[in-house]
Design a protein around this nucleic acid. Structure first.
Lengths: 338, 338
DNA sequence: ATGGGTCGTGGAACCGCTTCCAGACAATAG
DNA sequence: CTATTGTCTGGAAGCGGTTCCACGACCCAT
């Protein structure tokens, strides 16, 4: 079944051809669907099975000038990504989809200094046919290298300079709007918002949605705080917010932040949702791991990743981009915190 | 700086050699530290810079019979891994370490059916020089393929058949013992234990530690329940356990389970830690995302992954294994739940 | 019979790099 | 001054596939 020769000598196409009684070129054609007689194909297939032949990928790459591999570029500080179940989901889905389509995913996740030092060479060494880049945080230097590589690229999340670059994203404005609107509909009148880092596109969009919902309701928006996408930011924010007793709701721009807010409110003696209602964003597993379970805006992360994969695949096959960008809708998941 | 030619023609070593006024072989030697005159090296380096040359990886692989890539094999159902922050950490650390050492990590994470269908070919196609396998769950078919590949392999976690295969793990017996002992020291007298799937090595070891601690204290162990490593198992377990009012502590074999237990106890009206103390395992970020914050057994996951990477690297360089297995200690992190 | 297709095939070139080998040359030893 | 060593070099032969090309066999319509 598998190669019985315990260890060393890998089978080559030459040996297959010899056993099948044909030329190497014929064997190659037989295997790759080129012109070949029925008998040739059968003989070759039999030989392949008998010898446990597997074509050498490097040789193939060299000859075809195509790697059948793609890079998953995660330009984040690796120590940060544990807080981000979204990222885990993205990676997982991309990996599964690419494998299914016969592409090997290379995980480009390294120390930031390594990244700027190595990414350029890596991309230009013909290691991959294309890449997907998660662009939650911007990083000019990395952007630069990516742009210079001229490899087919799809971004997960709107890239900082969306020069009609292909990307998939949710409608963050809508998401922010929905969350805020829900709180307003529940009668909350002074809503604070805790965001991620200033300047990040999704953060600004969610903020815009927040503002717009308040404006539409004729309510003055409560305090808006920038932070980062982790529980600490939430704790800090909560500490600041309780100073204003009129604040009766918080829209946290990620579940991680919301968790921190919850903790901060708890230690300040505020009860959720009675005193303060809290809405998160992302609908990650922590939303249900926390008490009270979090009302949150769900992103269809897996579908998004699926779209990303199919966009890149489509381009690699047809050499042209389909509809881009692709914007997917969000959905408010109501639980106990608001 | 980088290749100015916007797009297509990649620079080859031939062009570098021509520009430097030497033969291709000399250029190769100059770049790879072979014998070469000072002038030759300088001329080549200059040409390289000028042209933005990056050696083609496939050609290198073919010529050297070495890929400088390793596989990260995750034989788990991809939909499951989101519950597992440990896995995210492992992947991240491995990725960072391998990149730092000049090895490209290939993420082998796909649908189970795809895995058994494709893993064999992948491993035998000369895609990688070695691999690391996370072996939380056993899977005979995958085991088989891995064994047949005869690639250098390190396991994260004791593999089902540790035929002196290289692996890194924690002392799970000790971990289980510590958790249980702590509860006993706190005066708890009827301690239940909620484990992962029966038959998994780590689960059985933790169970053994649990049993032994009880025995050492002369206390009869409370109910032992198998489940899986997710919050649902914890909820179910809690539901079952509250039937016995004497149960005053639960040792959950993962934080995810513990979170479920916490919820289950809460909805049964039990307070933690007053009525029932809870100890988790893993010390993942959910341990602090939940209220009360979880007392839990910490595994040095990142260090473990680091060990794994260095073991594989060591073998690839020296062609022999160092000390194996490597067993790292656990540590009890005391918080609020017990 | 003869000319013009297909179809299938083997040989050879090629992808871009590394490495073996033999030769050129200079420096040192005899 | 030759013999011996040593350093550096270019040419050529790989690595293991794919693909171009020319050629022979075959079938059909002329």
């Amino acid at each position: 079944m598998t190669d019985p020769s315990g260890n060393l000598p890998p089978v080559t196409l030459d040996e297959v051809a010899r056993l099948a009684g044909v030329a190497r070129s014929t064997a190659s054609r037989a295997l790759n669907g080129g012109v070949a007689s029925r008998e040739a194909i059968e003989a070759v297939n039999k030989a392949v099975r008998q010898l446990g032949f597997v074509p050498n990928q490097a040789a193939r790459t060299l000859a075809r000038n195509r790697t059948d591999a793609v890079a998953l570029v995660i330009p984040e500080d690796p120590s940060r990504i544990f807080f981000d179940p979204v990222l885990a989901m993205v990676i997982s889905r991309l990996s599964v989809d690419f494998w299914r389509e016969g592409l090997q995913p290379l995980l480009v996740l390294m120390d930031p200094e390594d990244l700027i030092a190595k990414l350029g060479s890596f991309l230009n060494a013909g290691n991959v046919d294309g890449m997907v880049v998660t662009s939650f945080h911007s990083n000019p230097e990395v952007e630069e290298v990516i742009a210079a590589s001229s490899l087919p690229t799809v971004f997960f999340g709107r890239p900082p300079r969306p020069d009609s670059l292909p990307y998939v994203d949710i409608d963050n404005v809508e998401g922010g709007y929905k969350a805020t609107r829900y709180l307003l509909d529940k009668g909350r009148r002074r809503i604070a918002c805790v965001g991620g880092p200033a300047g990040v596109p999704s953060v600004e969009d969610r903020r815009q949605g927040f503002m717009r919902a308040c404006a539409d309701a004729g309510v003055e928006p409560g305090p808006y705080l920038y932070g980062s996408f982790d529980p600490e930011s939430g704790i800090n924010a909560a500490a600041a917010l309780v100073a204003d007793p009129r604040v009766d709701a918080v829209f946290a721009q990620s579940d991680a932040i919301a968790v921190g807010v919850l903790q901060g409110l708890a230690s300040a003696g505020k009860s959720v949702p009675e005193d303060v209602a809290v809405v998160g964003f992302d609908n990650t597993s922590t939303a249900t791991a926390v008490l009270p379970n979090l009302t949150t805006v769900a992103q269809p992360v897996s579908e998004m990743a699926g779209e990303v994969a199919s966009m890149l695949l489509g381009f690699l096959r047809t050499r042209q981009w389909g509809e881009t960008p692709r914007i997917l809708p969000t959905e408010l998941v109501v639980r106990d915190s608001a």
